[in-house]
């Protein structure tokens, strides 16, 4: 039990379970799932589907943060990806065909790739501090997105495109499947190869990593590209869900939610050891919070305060100092340790 409560995922998981239980108490049908027209419905599915873009972005953010970096530009990448794909579909001669949708997806992902390369270039080659380097794209990116959409909200009508964010496959929302696939890919990419260990090494001690022969530049480049591609896929989901690209509001403040998910999940902003599972749990906590606000019927004006309270609690539970305090309150005085082996002074 003690070792379980010391596990780094313990508190995020407990917090998530508590939130879910709270919802269950107020709405007895909260956990229930039902089939309708071959689709799975239920609050839990809604939470996962609505949380999918945040989870995606938080996965990329986790790896960036593990290298001691941060990526503030993800919201702008969401906007650019959505704008580029929707603008392409709207302008194409066959705006309804699946081929057009596929091309649009490709364009968005390549755009994400290019933006990630840009961030990675600034951070790893030029040596700009990550927060500044990605701030560039954070501000400039929305401008680029507006240029693409011409300042308008671009609506599209393409069933294939719409299915990314709103469609179903094997009874499950496609967005959940995409997110699960990216999670699996990230897990395999980092733990089946040495990438995960090397990311942590660079994050924990960059100087020693360099002297051990690590090419930190490549590692850093990879994580920023991965982060931007995740953001581009999230951008596709968001724009597909509303079948429109909104350069101003798509993915607004999503970087904050993503960073929060990473931190709640137990990855330190100081870099080093990270946990992808923790990040997913963190993102679920954030999304469940939003749902809880509706379930409890909390008036909109207190919503943010309520969210803040939960976030503060989870963060406190994770802080080593607060944790020590907690365990010390719990710990009863222990019986004396076994007798020491001593050698008497005999000279």
């Amino acid at each position: 039990m003690k070792s379980l409560s010391k596990h780094r995922l313990a508190w995020p998981v407990i917090a998530l379970a508590a939130l879910l239980l709270l919802n269950q108490v107020f709405r007895p049908d909260f956990m229930s799932l039902r089939m309708q027209d071959g689709h799975l419905y239920g609050s839990l599915i809604d939470i996962m589907r609505n949380g999918a873009p945040t989870i995606l972005i938080a996965l990329g953010m986790t790896l960036v943060i593990a290298t001691r970096g941060i990526d503030l530009s993800v919201g702008a990448v969401v906007a650019i990806a959505g704008a580029a794909s929707c603008a392409y579909i709207a302008a194409s001669p066959e705006p309804g065909s699946p081929v057009t949708a596929a091309t649009a997806v490709l364009i968005a992902v390549v755009a994400g790739l290019a933006l990630g390369v840009w961030n990675g270039f600034l951070v790893s080659t030029i040596g700009v501090q990550p927060i500044i380097a990605t701030l560039v794209l954070m501000t400039a990116g929305r401008g680029v997105a507006q240029l693409i959409t011409g300042g308008q909200i671009v609506s599209v009508s393409n069933d294939s495109y719409k299915s990314i964010g709103a469609g179903y496959l094997f009874t499950l929302p496609i967005s959940i499947l995409i997110t699960a696939a990216v999670f699996a890919l990230a897990a395999v990419l980092t733990r089946r190869t040495a990438l995960g260990t090397l990311i942590e090494a660079v994050g924990i001690n960059p100087v020693a990593s360099r002297l051990a022969g690590l090419r930190a530049r490549n590692i850093i480049w990879i994580v920023y590209v991965f982060s931007a591609v995740c953001a581009a896929i999230a951008g596709l989901m968001i724009s597909s869900n509303v079948t429109a690209a909104d350069a101003n509001n798509a993915g607004l403040y999503i970087e904050m939610d993503a960073i929060l998910a990473v931190v709640i999940g137990g990855t330190s902003l100081a870099g080093g050891r990270y946990t992808l599972v923790g990040t997913v749990v963190g993102a679920f906590i954030i999304q469940t919070l939003t749902t809880t606000v509706y379930t409890l019927g909390i008036p909109p004006e207190v919503t943010l305060v309520f969210k803040a309270l939960v976030v503060i609690t989870v963060c406190l539970l994770q802080a080593p100092k607060a944790r020590n305090l907690f365990t010390r309150l719990k710990a009863a005085p222990k019986p004396a340790a076994q007798e020491a082996v001593k050698e008497k002074v005999a000279i």
Partner: peptide
Amino acid sequence: EEGLIGDLTLRDNLVLAMQASKGW
């Protein structure tokens, strides 16, 4: 400062240079 990757295990530290030259 220049040798250890403190938060990694003995194993990870021991194979680090070898892993680095093999690539990720």
